[in-house]
Amino acid sequence: MKNISAICFVLLFLTACSTSSTGRKQVSLYPEDELNQMGITSFEQMKKEIPISTDKATNDFVLCVADAITANVPKSANQGDWEVVVFDSEQVNAFALPGGKIGVYTGILNVTENQDQLAAIIGHEVGHVLEHHSNERLSADKLSNVGLAVAAIAIGASEVENKGLWVAGLGIGVQYGLIMPYSRSHESEADIVGQDLMARSGFEPQASVQLWQNMSKLSKTAPPEFMSTHPSNETRIEQLNGHLAVSQPYYLAEKKQNHLPNCVKPKVIPTPKVKK
C-alpha cells in the first residue's frame, strides 16, 4: 500500500506541472518535437489514404478561413506555415494536428452555412493544438495504464474475492470517471479557446452557437453525456453562449478596424467521388 500511495503522490504531482490558458491543470509527458512529428507523419498517411478535393472554389473558401485563423495563432504553437488540406469525403469532420496541419472534410461544409461557422470549426480544432490536448490525452492514457497495472498487482496480492471483477470494474471506472471527463474538458476548452481565436480573426463568435445548433439536428441519437467523450450539444451551446461576453469585444475591435475576412462559400459543394 505504501508503494501505491507513493505512485499516487507522483501522479498528483505530475498533474500540477503545467496549466492551460483557461487555468486547467495539465500533465504532458511527451516532448513537443515528438508530438509534432507524430502529427506530420499521421497527416502524410491520411493524404495517401483519403481523396483530396481538387475543386478550386471549395479549396479557396477553406484556405481563406484557415489562413485568417492561423494568422492569429502564436508562433510557439507552430514555427512554420500551416498546411491545410480539404479531404473529399462525406464525413462531417475536421481536425488540426501538432506540427501545423489542418484537415477539413467536404462533408462538414454542408453543415457550416458561412465563413463564420467554418471559422468556429477550424478555431475549435486549432484550439486543441494550442492547449496541447494530444499530449495530455497520450499522457493520461499512459498514466491510467500504469495505475491499472499497479492496482491489479495490489488486488492480486490481496485476499478479496472475485479479483477479476474488481480489475474489470477498475477499468470501467477509469474509462467513465477519468478518460471520458478528461476528453469532455478538452472539448469544452477547445470550444472557448476557438471562439476567442475566431473572434480575434474577425469572425462573428455568435456563429459558434449557431454551428452547434446545426450539429444538434444531426445527432439526435447521441449517447448520454456521461458516456461520451464529447459534451452534449446543449452543454456546448450553453457554454459558448456564456462566453460571448468575453469573445464578442474581440470581434467588435476587428470590425471597427475593418479587419473582417471575406471568404465566400461556394453555392455548391461537389459530391465526393465514389471509388469504383
Rank of each mutant, 00 (worst) to 15 (best):
F87R: 06
R184L: 08
E161M: 09
L244Q: 15
V160Q: 14
V209N: 03
W82L: 12
E225F: 02
S228I: 05
L11P: 00
T112P: 06
K276V: 00
Q175H: 13
S42N: 12
K47C: 11
S76I: 14
E159S: 14
S21G: 07
I269P: 03
A120D: 06
I192F: 05
S183D: 01
K163F: 09
P205Q: 09
T54D: 10
N114V: 04
N78Y: 14
M46H: 03
L170N: 03
A96N: 12
A66G: 05
S18K: 06
S228G: 06
W212Y: 12
S76T: 15
S247H: 06
E161N: 15
K163E: 07
S228V: 06
S158W: 05
L138F: 12
L35I: 11
S232D: 02
M1D: 02
V84H: 06
G242E: 13
Q91C: 01
S28W: 01
E254R: 15
N36G: 04
G177F: 10
S201D: 06
R236K: 07
L11K: 03
S232C: 04
G127M: 08
V84D: 08
S20W: 00
D141W: 11
G147L: 15
D55T: 01
S76D: 14
T19R: 11
E113R: 15
Q248T: 15
P266H: 03
L252F: 04
L29Q: 08
A151T: 11
M215C: 02
G147N: 06
L218V: 00
I4P: 00
S5F: 12
N262V: 04
I192E: 08
R24H: 08
G169Q: 09
K220R: 07
Q239W: 00
L29N: 11
S5W: 09
L252H: 05
S247R: 02
V209E: 03
A190E: 07
N214H: 01
D191M: 09
V150N: 01
N135H: 14
V104H: 04
A68Q: 14
T41I: 09
P266Y: 02
S232M: 05
V111W: 03
G164M: 07
L130Y: 06
T15A: 04
G177V: 05
Q115D: 09
Q175M: 12
K220M: 11
P266C: 06
T112K: 06
E44R: 13
L252V: 11
S219H: 07
P205R: 04
I102Q: 12
